[in-house]
Nucleic acid binder design. Structure first.
Lengths: 193, 193
DNA sequence: CGAATATACGGAGCAGTGTTCCGCTTTGGC
DNA sequence: GCCAAAGCGGAACACTGCTCCGTATATTCG
């Protein structure tokens, strides 16, 4: 969204505003880990030592806060794509490893996939981030695997990414008899045949 | 009026209690269709013309109401299994068709898969219903396909059922670029190889 | 340095949930 | 018709997300 540039029209932010924004990001990251991304807004505000008004002024929607907290992790995931393609034993192996990476990211964010699934409008910013950063990377890996003849199914990167996201959304419940990674693996296998 | 029908489970309920229970079931079925299974409890109570106390007395948890409303549909899905095995061109074809049936059931229940996914404890009764009625059926179909050499992947009926459920849970959001049935199809394809 | 002003803060308050509790009503055996 | 028990209704409570506005403070300017 809006990168803050000290341009003539937009004066610099007040020091306390900057400080509070940082405190909110730290508090949110901490609370997200301990209580999931669905944690009450009040709790995050309290943790950061600010009032309700402050949190909503800095992050009008919960998704804005979530995006701010996780953006760099999404970037890291996106940037790993080309490296995997270069080092893996085959494009399909790279595809599997990259998807693994994505799964790892998702399942460690308690409630994030479910939240995105349940409130797509509210999390439009996060969806956009995923679409902008991850879909192109996955599309490249997928295309490489297809060129190598390892993938024949007619499936788009978008479709695949969302399928994996949905599977992970359901995998947050602990259940010794269910393994989301196996499901994902079967799905990938289904793409070759 | 002496004991009407001392059927097991309902010793002798008062007439108004029986009437209200039926009204609640009808109202819930109607509201679930129009507003999803997450519809406010108040709305269902109002629709049925009863008070808050009444709904909670008859159905202590929302899941109890959901189970009561959908039980016969789950039964129908379960009973379709053997018939499909007998008529389909191959066990794998029967597997695909049965899963299709299950998908059809899920996606027409706005919010049901997601609700089950998000509140597993509250919906324990529904999970139990699924496990009791559907897993054995799917296990039979799966075993038949395996015996025919059409399925080689080591996947349990439970795992497969839940995977499909999770995929459908994410498919409720309308999105022209995403097709849950294709994802399910790829997953099934991944089970042969 | 001190005042003026825009900026930002805090939290009370509103609205919408689920859930409980208890006084009142209705039912059905006598 | 009487009356205990079964059942009912909805007010009330707890907990959410989110908004609004009086107050406090950082920054600027004389």
């Amino acid at each position: 969204m809006g990168a803050q540039n000290p341009s003539p029209g937009s004066p610099t932010k007040r020091a306390d505003a900057r400080r509070n924004e940082k405190a909110l990001l730290d508090a949110a990251a901490s609370v997200f880990v301990t209580h999931g991304v669905d944690a009450p807004v009040r709790r995050i505000a309290t943790e950061a030592g600010v009032g309700m008004g402050t949190i909503y002024r800095h992050f009008p929607t919960r998704a804005d806060l979530v995006v701010a907290v996780y953006r760099h992790q999404v970037d890291a995931c996106a940037e790993a794509g080309p490296a995997l393609l270069a080092t893996a034993s085959s494009p399909f192996a790279a595809l599997c490893r990259w998807v693994d990476l994505f799964v790892e990211f998702l399942v460690t964010k308690h409630g994030l996939p479910a939240a995105m699934r349940d409130d797509p409008d509210g999390f439009a910013a996060l969806h956009a981030l995923f679409l902008d950063r991850l879909v192109p990377v996955l599309a490249d890996v997928l295309a490489a695997a297809r060129d190598a003849g390892e993938v024949t199914a007619e499936v788009t990167a978008h479709q695949l990414l969302r399928a994996v996201g949905d599977i992970c959304a359901g995998a947050e419940r602990v259940d010794p008899d269910y393994d989301a990674r196996l499901t994902v693996r079967l799905l990938l296998d289904g793409c070759r045949s």
